[in-house]
Design a protein around this nucleic acid. Structure first.
Length: 280
DNA sequence: ACATGCACCTGGGAGC
DNA sequence: TGCTCCCAGGTGCATG
């Protein structure tokens, strides 16, 4: 489900409710994703009795810092996090419930079971985090830095933006929003960008993500869909210029927004603002 | 080394 | 109501 702004929002929501709390029990009411052992036999059992010292985000990962170790959560496409009363009935798709010493619980739900969680010591944690690309909202993500990154790339822009080792945190929604903001077609080759287009792309990445983070100010994140399913839209659809808006007018020029497929992913664009590259 | 496309899962909506 | 088909916001890995 979530990309950088959504994961960031979830972290801001759970952090004050988790930091300083001790985990008393670990439950897996809806069954674990593939590859996970039962908690009684896996390293996950080691979370019991530990105190949550901090909650951080890196890329789309949620990091629950415990004593000595870190519980890493990846929500993938359909993962959600809720703070619930520990007495409440868990949702059907609850993969993990961490019961806390104040009677609350952290529920991790994931209908498609694509997400995962792992308890890691510092060394493997650092190795895992290093595989992610740079954080686009970090002050170090300057235009000069970005020029160096993209100079080595030749592929099409959409799959490049979706590559988590290129830049962290961008998914299918923000890839389309970024390319629209930069007025670049998703099939443009990175190697064909003029210097001012690289500048526009850099600016679009930073401003689109910053705005999405700043928009998410409610205390409890919107992790639901209205109308739901694949075509469902969260209430933040208002902040989207093109994504899932096929058939609607472009907010910039009024041309009809198109849906197409690029690198197997549904892709939305304005054909006038984002002219297609030549056949070559 | 780099680019591409599919596999991994399940569920919801549309159309018949 | 109950099919069947299509779609889904991520990423690791096999394949060119």
């Amino acid at each position: 489900m979530p990309e950088l702004p959504e994961v960031d929002h979830i972290v801001r929501y759970v952090r004050p409710r988790l930091v300083g709390r001790r985990i008393t029990t670990l439950e897996t009411p809806g069954g674990l994703p593939r590859g996970h052992d039962a908690p009684g036999t896996s390293p996950l059992k080691l979370v019991r009795g530990r105190t949550i010292r901090a909650v951080d985000r890196r890329a789309k990962l949620i990091l629950l810092r415990l004593d000595q170790r870190t519980l890493v959560l990846h929500l993938k496409l359909t993962g959600k996090c809720w703070i619930r009363d520990a007495d409440s009935a868990p949702a059907k798709s609850t993969r993990l419930r961490l019961v806390l010493d104040d009677g609350q619980a952290l529920d991790v739900e994931d209908a498609r079971k694509l997400g995962w969680f792992r308890l890691l010591e510092d060394e493997p944690l650092v190795a895992m985090l290093e595989k992610n690309g740079p954080e686009p909202l970090d002050p170090a993500f300057t235009l000069a830095f970005f020029r160096g990154l993209i100079a080595k790339k030749r592929g099409r822009l959409k799959p490049l933006l979706l590559d988590p080792t290129f830049v962290a945190g961008i998914g299918n929604i923000y890839a389309d929003e970024v390319l629209f903001a930069a007025k670049l077609h998703p099939r443009r080759l990175a190697s064909t960008l003029a210097p001012r287009e690289v500048g526009a792309l850099h600016r679009a990445i930073v401003t689109s993500l910053k705005r999405a983070v700043a928009d998410r100010t409610e205390e409890v994140p919107d992790q639901t869909r209205v109308g739901s399913g694949a075509r469902g839209a969260s209430k933040h659809i208002k902040t989207r210029q093109v994504f899932q808006r096929a058939g609607e007018p472009c907010p910039r020029c009024g041309e009809t927004i198109l849906r197409t497929v690029v690198a197997t992913r549904g892709t939305y664009l304005c054909p006038r603002c984002q002219p297609a590259p030549g056949p070559a």
